[in-house]
Write a protein that binds this DNA or RNA. Structure first.
Lengths: 233, 233, 233, 233
DNA sequence: CATGAATGAGGTTTCATTCAT
DNA sequence: TATGAATGAAACCTCATTCAT
């Protein structure tokens, strides 16, 4: 993000601080619901000075997004390139992802919630980055399947489960809470690696029961919006 | 939602249609970015008439949210009350949840994205409903642990994993795609039930490797934002 | 300019009135110096209602411009197509042009002064219209030369003289003053038609004198910015 | 233009250069649409330093205007005072005027377009200068009439024609084009001097035809905005 | 039931100008 | 001399909402 030439030494520092505060406000109230006035008040700067630093409101979104996605993608590529067990690399990647979620929770909120507010080009860049990240996961999962560590399954679906489990974390996690990134990574990977591992005997039974239930109890459809007719007894 | 007294027979029908269209627009463009004019154009009604049906813009949000949460919570309670295996009930609850995600994808988008736009009271109601739903899951997971089907673990963390896996689905799912709610439920539960099951021997190894990696390779920190110092060899 | 469907009968009337007032304000203070608030005050409408009618500030410019150029060009084409003496057609065209300058003086001011504020596409349209109009003049002048009514001269330069003489009129004309469009047209054409007619003997003399003056009086250069060295006597 | 006391030797030089660049920018984009930032960028100076030289934005307008009007008026007075044929003096004055239009086209653009942005006092000065210049022309034309070189006509109207023809030139002239100031002056004066000269026989005919046309063809009114009723045949 | 017209607050952004350094 | 930082007014425009008809 090369700024026009001629900025004093403190410029970039203050600029970063403003982006931080913006991320915090956007995370709390949403991008659309946060006005430049709100930001100015929080920063302690009049509107004019604010624009001196930020360029535009949408540009803040771009900065926030790239501050999250740039480092993450870069580190993720390094990890994926390691000459190691795919499972280990997945585990490391998982912790890396969770680490940035913990550290930059505000940014992640914005990133996950308001990326639709980006205009065409910026949105395209963002989606490409997301896609690159997903591909790294997908490749590792495929390798794990090929090496027999996971049962054979749709790599796409496995990827999506991995991402669901990690990416939704921002919705409830508390950076200063009882769990840290390492612990969550450990737990998530334990679930996923076991879950993706060789089939055991418990599963088929439940699945069969579920089929029977649906057959035998048409009066209690799983569709929450289906009409309800009690079979009571 | 105070509705003016004395409505014709078509009132409710048309009202529901409007809410549907609103959900669709909000899902596409976001609640804040959708104007009442947009909605009027999509519905084919001038603003005045629109307000006759909707009351206010925020009220639409309330309607959309309750249309999702009402049936879901009601059905979830019925399922949780069944006299059956906790695993089976979890499996049924999973499919129920995914079914409504598939069916009401637009509503879910709005529900997940824009609930922050609700004002105090409505927000409180919504959060209470979310909490109730989570409690149902949590109780079933605890029962499964007590009955030895799952290893002992934090019920809260298990719940959050269950919710992460399911709730993030709306981000990418395509209702007319290759997978349906039943299939996804099957897959998710396969992962979770295996993952939450008795510990196998594969896991500890990965975890130990991860610890060693972090010890031996300080030059490649998992923190994506940490400074990078190559240990080259 | 078809407006979005669904406007009452009074809409267009009021819209035209607003454009009129806008033209008047723009003519007095300039387009850039006239704010939408100014316009609102003059019209007696709040900003919101104003935008209901005008679409955007720039759109006002487009309307004003086309209100002048549309009728003028259309009528000019009819006149140019008449089966008559080129001189007569030039005379009629002159009066037509001056008539609209008198009638729509405000619009002309805006049209002549602020067309640079138009954005790309609109500007292109405007310039094309101007060019079309100039071409009509140019063709008639060429015909007059071919028929021996005018001495042979650059048609382009003749056209520009015609336009200079007419178009600059808006700068000082007073619609309710002592002269009307017909009179001015008569006078302008008298000047131009005589001036473009066969060469007489008075001219060369002046021109020769001017050359001699410049040769003999280097101390009084015609360039107003040249250094001055008095030759005083 | 209060200049802070004590300026280095380069001050005035740099100041003039800045005014030049300002004139160029104002001519291209208009005074209102050119920001001090634009100017700073073009000059290569930050805003603070710029204000050290220019005083204020409006002051630039004053400088630009006086740079054109000062020398022109001074030279015009000298020419008008010459003991010579009024026609010759008009011809010299014409060339003088066109010379500065060619040389200072940017300034002229600004002068003609944005003088309305001047505040009260400055505007009054400018208008007085304009008026003085016009008076010089008017006097010469009157003399030419008295001496029988021109037919008797309204001196005011003759002046306005002279000014129209010359002053509108800035709208299309290209300083490096095929024509120079001397040539244009020659052509303009040829037109005007012939046009203002003794009546010839071509004119009355056209004028009579025009009257007949308007009488006989009410269906083709010269007013471009008049309703059109074809008289077809 | 339905409409088009009107409002007024608030949104983002620009800009001439000032001033400490 | 020159700079970068700061201000505050004002610009254009949008929008949820109301209301007479």
């Amino acid at each position: 993000m090369p700024r026009p030439p001629g900025h004093g030494p403190g410029f970039e520092v203050r600029r970063q601080k403003i982006i931080d505060i913006a991320a915090s406000l956007f995370a709390q109230q949403g991008y659309a619901a946060t006005s430049i006035n709100d930001l100015g008040r929080a920063v302690g700067l009049a509107k004019g000075a604010l624009y001196y630093y930020i360029g535009s409101k949408e540009n803040l979104l771009v900065e926030i997004q790239s501050r999250v996605m740039g480092p993450l993608l870069s580190r993720a590529r390094q990890i994926a390139d390691l000459d190691m067990d795919p499972l280990l690399r997945l585990r490391l990647l998982s912790e890396s992802l969770l680490t940035i979620i913990f550290r930059r929770l505000d940014h992640i909120w914005v990133y996950e919630h308001d990326y639709r507010s980006l205009s065409g080009d910026e949105l395209k860049t963002l989606l490409a980055q997301r896609s690159d990240f997903e591909q790294l996961i997908s490749d590792l999962l495929s390798q794990a399947m090929e090496q027999g560590m996971f049962r054979t399954m749709s790599p796409r679906l496995a990827t999506l489960q991995f991402l669901n489990l990690h990416n939704h974390t921002y919705q409830w996690v508390k950076p200063d809470g009882q769990w840290d990134a390492q612990f969550l990574s450990h737990e998530y990977c334990a679930t996923l690696f076991r879950g993706f591992g060789a089939p055991d005997h418990a599963l088929p039974k439940v699945e069969k029961q579920a089929q029977e239930f649906k057959r035998d109890r048409p009066g209690l459809p799983l569709d929450p919006e289906a009409e309800w007719e009690a079979t009571a007894g």
